[in-house]
Design a protein around this nucleic acid. Structure first.
Length: 221
DNA sequence: AACGCGGGCAACCGCTGGCTC
DNA sequence: AGAGCCAGCGGTTGCCCGCGT
């Protein structure tokens, strides 16, 4: 049995006060991030380290972009979700100033609903009734990280892409998936391709190497 | 005006994987 | 080799607010 990450008796929970935010911000400005476990004590906060980390990363960091998502950001999230599944931190990494929590919330509250309305299964980005793989169809409602994170979903639809170039760095794994059949980005139905299966396998084989490749992708396709 | 309901968001919880000893 | 620690991640929860009745 693992020890709790902190002494729960002396720990504040719930919403952060302005004073707490200030203490954490001041501390990190002076000492920088890192060693979250020791930060609460050092900063004079009655919070657990995890809570401090979350507050900083999702709310207090100076480079966070807040407010509504632009259309091109939304398009990018959809495309990346088709590629990466529920790997929110990876998706957020491609959206400067956005946090994984924000992206996740936005997906669950806006995009997911929107896709369902359009008759697209948000879990596999395919139309609801057809072409659903057995393991994917079970994901309706509660999708498990197992089904989404480990199995790579292949992009089979496209949004009305904002006609912009995005300079994004991808891991080898991601770029393997991207590199061949070109992203069908028009919310149209793509027939399952044997090519795609082999690419998925290839991607999994390559996943050991996380060496990042920097590539330009043209989202106009 | 009061109430219920649903959406949005911040925060928590528990698991995982990497690292160290 | 394996046990323990830690940061990071994704899923889930709970609160708040706006809207409809």
């Amino acid at each position: 049995m693992r020890k709790p990450c902190c002494d729960k008796a002396n720990i504040n929970k719930g919403a952060w006060s302005k004073q707490e935010d200030q203490k954490l911000t001041d501390y990190i400005r002076v000492h920088g991030e890192g060693c979250w476990r020791s930060i609460p004590k050092a900063a004079g906060l009655h919070r657990c380290g995890k809570s401090c980390r979350l507050r900083w990363l999702n709310y207090l960091r100076p480079d966070i972009k807040r407010g509504i998502f632009a259309e091109d950001e939304e398009d990018l999230i959809i495309k990346l979700h088709a590629l990466l599944g529920n790997r929110w931190s990876l998706i957020a990494g491609r959206l400067p100033g956005r946090t994984d929590n924000e992206v996740k919330n936005y997906w669950n509250s806006h995009i997911r609903r929107k896709l369902i309305k359009m008759g697209i299964d948000p879990n596999n980005h395919r139309p609801h009734q057809s072409f659903s793989r057995p393991h994917a169809s079970s994901a309706e409602g509660a999708s498990t990280s197992e089904s989404l994170n480990k199995g790579h979903k292949v992009p089979v639809f496209k949004s009305r892409a904002a006609a912009t170039h995005h300079r994004i760095s991808f891991t080898k794994e991601e770029s393997t998936i991207i590199s061949s059949p070109p992203l069908n980005l028009d919310l149209t139905i793509a027939l399952p391709s044997p090519m795609i299966g082999s690419l998925e396998d290839k991607a999994i084989q390559n996943s050991e190497s996380t060496k990042t490749l920097v590539m330009e992708i043209d989202l106009n396709c």
